[in-house]
Amino acid sequence: MKFRAVRIFEEDGKFLKKIVERSIDDLPEGDVVINVKYTSLNYKDALSCIGNRGVTRNYPHTPGIDAAGVVTESKTSDFKPGDEVILTGFDLGMNTDGGFGEYIRVPKEWVIKRPENLSLKEAMVYGTAGFTAGLSVYELMKDVKPENGKILVSGGTGGVGSHAVRFLSKMGYNVTAVINGDQEEKLAKELGAKDTVNREVLDDKSGKALLKQSWAGVVDTVGGNPLSTAIRSASYGGVVTTCGNVAGGELPFSTVYPFILRGVKLVGIDSVQCPKEKREKIWELISKEWKGANLESGIKEVDMAGIFDEVENMLNGRLIGRVIIRHKG
């Protein structure tokens, strides 16, 4: 059986993006074959498209770390043909051909059934970004209640940040989104943020170990000095979750003092190897309690050919909101 897929080729030291025809027989071994209906664009996908060896070691390769579709073949009793399923994380789209193709074949452990209250399209509106935001909010909510104070979300209109704003606002939290410019402010307010601040607020270089207590909780999506600033400005007993490093992997000006003098808790978020039981729990929350009415605000839908321009927009910092890809096959 033939299908279409985005394929990244390495030729003479350059990486070329093409749409090619492939066969099911070309796919790696696995328990479940899935006809992908929707996928989404994540930063890892953009990096894979330009040959980043930290994401994808071997080429040619099909990116796409998310997928939502219909099972067509199954070697396991866990799934049967016709089941609608979701995949995020593990090795999908990194070194295993991913959702930028109309078909994938994967191990059964990577797959969960679509929650009843979530369509395949909605699942990819969330995707890895929404799932990561869900994990962040889940951990924050264990110790921080709406009455405890304001919640700060860095990258407030990005993939993870926008969903975190949605979830927290839906659950009654007073959310402040970190933005960059008037256009992002409008989107942040549409997502549910009660207030916004420019990203310079999270770039303190004073060297102070402790800053003014401002945030009962923080969902950090960028790392680096913004994360350091968030930790130093968290209120007593505050919770800071962290899931990204686009601003760097170091924590300048950070010390142990926020943790031992204010009892601040720093929680790392990993969406790749998250156990299946917890994965299913988060998706259930996303499909029910956390699901909002303005789900497609800030969402752009493209077809397979439209992926290439959006990859360039993401890599050049021009992408606002989130892109999902609809396959015709």
Results as ranks from 00 to 15, higher is better:
residue 1 M to I: 11
residue 8 I to K: 13
residue 8 I to D: 06
residue 12 D to W: 11
residue 18 K to H: 11
residue 18 K to Y: 08
residue 19 I to H: 12
residue 25 D to M: 05
residue 30 G to W: 03
residue 32 V to D: 00
residue 32 V to G: 04
residue 35 N to M: 09
residue 39 T to M: 10
residue 48 S to G: 11
residue 53 R to I: 13
residue 56 T to P: 13
residue 57 R to F: 04
residue 57 R to A: 12
residue 61 H to W: 07
residue 62 T to A: 04
residue 69 G to I: 04
residue 70 V to Y: 08
residue 72 T to E: 12
residue 76 T to A: 01
residue 83 D to N: 03
residue 86 I to L: 14
residue 88 T to L: 03
residue 88 T to G: 01
residue 91 D to G: 00
residue 92 L to N: 00
residue 93 G to A: 12
residue 94 M to S: 12
residue 95 N to T: 15
residue 96 T to K: 10
residue 97 D to M: 07
residue 97 D to P: 05
residue 113 K to R: 15
residue 114 R to F: 09
residue 114 R to E: 11
residue 114 R to Y: 05
residue 115 P to W: 09
residue 118 L to Q: 05
residue 119 S to E: 09
residue 121 K to M: 10
residue 132 T to P: 06
residue 133 A to C: 12
residue 135 L to V: 15
residue 137 V to T: 04
residue 138 Y to C: 08
residue 140 L to V: 11
residue 141 M to A: 15
residue 142 K to N: 08
residue 147 E to A: 13
residue 150 K to R: 15
residue 154 S to R: 00
residue 156 G to S: 07
residue 159 G to Y: 03
residue 160 V to G: 08
residue 163 H to F: 08
residue 169 S to L: 08
residue 170 K to S: 07
residue 171 M to S: 15
residue 174 N to E: 15
residue 176 T to K: 05
residue 177 A to P: 01
residue 179 I to S: 01
residue 182 D to H: 05
residue 184 E to D: 09
residue 187 L to G: 01
residue 187 L to P: 00
residue 193 A to D: 04
residue 196 T to I: 06
residue 202 L to I: 06
residue 202 L to P: 00
residue 204 D to Y: 06
residue 207 G to Y: 06
residue 208 K to F: 02
residue 209 A to Q: 15
residue 215 W to I: 02
residue 218 V to G: 03
residue 220 D to S: 01
residue 228 S to F: 06
residue 229 T to E: 09
residue 229 T to A: 07
residue 234 A to R: 08
residue 236 Y to Q: 12
residue 241 T to I: 00
residue 247 A to H: 03
residue 247 A to C: 12
residue 251 L to Y: 08
residue 262 R to W: 01
residue 271 S to M: 02
residue 274 C to S: 13
residue 275 P to E: 14
residue 276 K to C: 02
residue 281 K to I: 13
residue 282 I to E: 07
residue 286 I to S: 08
residue 286 I to V: 14
residue 303 D to V: 02
residue 307 I to V: 15
residue 307 I to M: 09
residue 312 E to S: 15
residue 313 N to W: 07
residue 321 G to S: 10
residue 322 R to P: 01
residue 323 V to H: 01
